[in-house]
Structures are given as structure tokens and as C-alpha cells.
Amino acid sequence: MAYVPVPKDLSKIKTKVAFNLTKRQIVCFAAALITGLPLFFLLKDSAGTSAAAFVMIVVMLPCFLMAMYEKHGQPLETVVKNIIQTKFVRPKERPYQTQNLYAVLERQRKLEKEVSAIVKGTNQRRRTGKKPRN
């Protein structure tokens, strides 16, 4: 009897379209062929076969990487975007800041004292008709 391994996490399964490749891989490989082959045939006569092949590989490599490379379930462009954001866009130093609730309570108590002092002062003025001494 043949046993077939079934993954426990079904979200990691990608549907294969043709030749055991996903749609993303087929599109990326097609883009690589569309850019690489004409470039090879254009450069083959003027630069030589080996130089044209090298240039073709260099031009097609990003498409191959976009089709095949994946880290932690994320494609290459997402990984590159995250690296660019952490290295260049976001600030290097992110200080740890907390909300000091004690300071808020202290400020509230101080404001309440000030308000009560004002209220007491206006009440004294109404009764006596003159300003209170401090």
C-alpha cells in the first residue's frame, strides 16, 4: 500500500497549473524568455556567443528569482520591500516609550487644586467684596 504525505497546513499548498508550475512561475518564466532570447540573438553576432549567453543569464536571473525564491512564505518582492523599509525608510533608532499614568494623575491633581483655589478665591471675594491675601 502506498502512503501519500498530507500536509497539516493546507494554506501552504499552491495550485499547480501546468508542468507542475504555479501561475506565478509560468508568468515569470515567460517574461524571462521574452526578454532573454531576443537579447541573446541580438548580441550573438557582435559580442560572441559566450558573452551573449552571459548577458542573457544576467537579464533573465531577476525573473527566475521572482518565480522561485520564497522566504517564510513571502515572495522575493515582499522580502526586498521589507529590507528596504528597515534599512532606509524607517528610522534606525526607535526609542521605547510608555504612557506614564502616574504623571497623568499628578497633573490632574494639580489642576484640581488650582481650580479649587480659584473657586475658593471667588467665593471669598463675593462674601467680603475684596481680594483674598495669599
Rank of each mutant, 00 (worst) to 15 (best):
T128H: 02
M66D: 11
C63L: 01
K120I: 01
A47K: 13
T128S: 12
A51M: 13
K110P: 00
Q97L: 08
L76M: 11
K71T: 02
N123E: 15
Q124F: 13
S116L: 15
S116F: 12
A67H: 03
F64A: 13
A67Y: 04
V115A: 10
R125P: 00
K120V: 01
T78H: 10
T128W: 03
Y69C: 10
K71H: 06
E112H: 08
E70V: 04
Q99K: 11
L111F: 07
P75L: 00
K113I: 09
T86F: 00
L76F: 12
A52H: 03
A51N: 14
K113Q: 15
N82I: 00
K81Q: 09
F64G: 08
T98P: 00
E93Q: 06
R126A: 04
A103R: 12
L105K: 15
T128V: 05
V55P: 00
L61I: 07
V58S: 07
K92W: 08
E93Y: 08
E106T: 09
E112K: 12
G73T: 06
V104Y: 12
K81H: 07
H72C: 02
C63E: 00
M68S: 14
V115T: 11
A117T: 14
E77I: 09
R107P: 00
M68I: 11
Q108P: 00
R126G: 03
Q97H: 06
K120L: 03
A67F: 05
M66V: 09
Q99G: 02
M68Q: 11
E77F: 10
K110L: 11
Q85W: 06
Q108Y: 13
E106F: 12
E106V: 06
F54V: 10
N123L: 10
K87W: 05
M68A: 11
E93F: 09
Q99H: 06
E112T: 06
N82M: 03
H72G: 05
K87T: 13
V104Q: 11
E106K: 14
E70G: 06
L111P: 01
Y96S: 14
Y102H: 14
Q99R: 11
F88G: 02
Q97N: 09
V59H: 03
R90D: 13
L111Y: 10
L101Q: 07
I118D: 08
Q99N: 10
I84T: 04
N123I: 06
R109M: 12
Q99Y: 12
T49S: 13
K120A: 15
P75N: 12
N82P: 00
L105D: 15
G48K: 06
V104E: 10
F64N: 05
F64D: 02
L111H: 08
